[in-house]
Write a protein that binds this DNA or RNA. Structure first.
Lengths: 234, 234
DNA sequence: AATTTAATTGTAAAACTAACAATTATATTT
DNA sequence: AAATATAATTGTTAGTTTTACAATTAAATT
């Protein structure tokens, strides 16, 4: 069988926007680019798709290579393909975004690639169109997190309601009423109360909760409406 | 500056899932593929990205070339890149979905490509992973249409409430209460009542409405909640 | 024992959603 | 001209959800 010989070929890359939460702040993971062009400048995790590799497969590989991370939440964001986006060669980049609990993977982060966490509200200028990618990822995170329980991916297996609220408040850059927030998240039926308390962050201590895995899968697609209407500024 | 010489290149294509509404049924536009492989089999509108062309730009071009359509709603759906998805050569396809009012563009459809409208519930087996693409597009259409007013793109500039309801019922394969539906869509403030009636579809005639363009842009991102919770089966 | 800090719990008004049927306008038929 | 048929239009009420708002509790520290 003959090939599509008259068509022009190009490179396909993956870039990953990795969101992390440390209990206080929402952050993104950036690296200092290790090769030309723009060597030494801040960049998203990225790499080229290999000959016999699917897109998601490539994203998983790159994430693992550069950070050591495995088995984490990953979702396709968007395909970026403006002709001039990489000045060296025509490259289409498919962006993925990932969510992780920073502490859980703290030691696992490969040191060799100089990966660093940055606060989402003040991080450096990135190469190419990566700032644009981050912007889009932030929007999608906000959009999705208001309706589907994805933010749990940013927390440890056991977490408290106040921790959960802090996370939501970080993501939406606002603050919610404690009573209403707690009622809402408990009414989803996604949380299982534990017997132990977190005694680190307060004197009284806050009960730990775990995700109810069964309900989580089942209810993932239902709409949760966590964010009060008055806070939806988009 | 040296190129990324060690990386393998591949082809980039665009495929378009074109949804249309004729006042009764929700349909998709398919063509008989005009070149090998799989010549003569049903396929989505598609083509390869050119050397100096962006992704959306390519989608617009391909849509125009194969159908004559211009200025229609277009949105990126997903990037498909499994290694074997095109048996001839490694090709990544970025899928877009489009929404049009079938009657408005009836005569504009290029005859030469044998484009045909198919009912969304019974259309032929498609080449490659195109059936998968359509499935994903249907899901996204349902997801988005429940919250954002995109279905208006499938209607003529003047339409009636019963027509709008028929469209929603087609998209969700269900039926809604007339009184509640009309109250909901009117309460969005997106519709402007016209003085004329549509006298074709009923004896009494139904008032025409137009989209309020100003409000449409402003409220596009707000959540409309058109679909009653009891109808959300996903 | 008093103080401090943060977690936990409750209530009532307002807004929204959903279930349900009668009336109206017009063309067609008798 | 009256009766009939068809589909559009309109309203009410009960139930549910959302929001605004403050007092109480548990534990460590002083």
């Amino acid at each position: 069988m003959t090939k599509y010989s008259s068509q022009s070929k190009l490179l396909a890359a993956i870039d990953c926007i990795i969101f992390g939460f440390d209990g206080q702040e929402l952050k993104i993971l950036l690296i200092k680019r290790g090769f030309e062009p723009k060597r030494g400048q801040w960049s998203l995790m990225g790499g080229f798709i290999k000959k016999n590799e699917g897109l998601e497969e490539g994203a998983v590989r790159i994430l693992n290579q550069l950070t050591g991370l495995e088995g984490i939440y990953l979702e396709q964001l968007y395909a970026f393909g403006e002709p001039g986006r990489d000045p060296i060669e025509r490259t289409i980049s498919v962006a993925y975004f990932a969510l992780i609990d920073i502490h859980q993977y703290e030691n696992q982060l490969s040191r060799e690639y100089h990966a660093e966490w940055f606060n989402l509200t003040k991080f450096p200028r990135l190469i190419f169109d990566h700032n644009n990618m981050v912007e889009m990822a932030k929007e999608k995170l906000r959009y999705k997190a208001g309706m589907h329980p994805i933010l749990f991916e940013l927390l440890p297996p056991k977490f408290t309601i106040p921790q959960l609220q802090t996370l939501y408040e970080e993501v939406y850059s606002t603050s919610f009423d404690k009573r209403n927030f707690s009622r809402k998240v408990l009414s989803t039926g996604l949380l299982i109360k534990q017997k132990e308390k977190d005694k680190i962050n307060s004197k009284k201590g806050a009960y730990y909760y775990k995700l109810d895995k069964r309900n989580y899968e089942r209810k993932f697609q239902s709409f949760l409406n966590i964010i009060p209407n008055s806070h939806k500024h988009w």
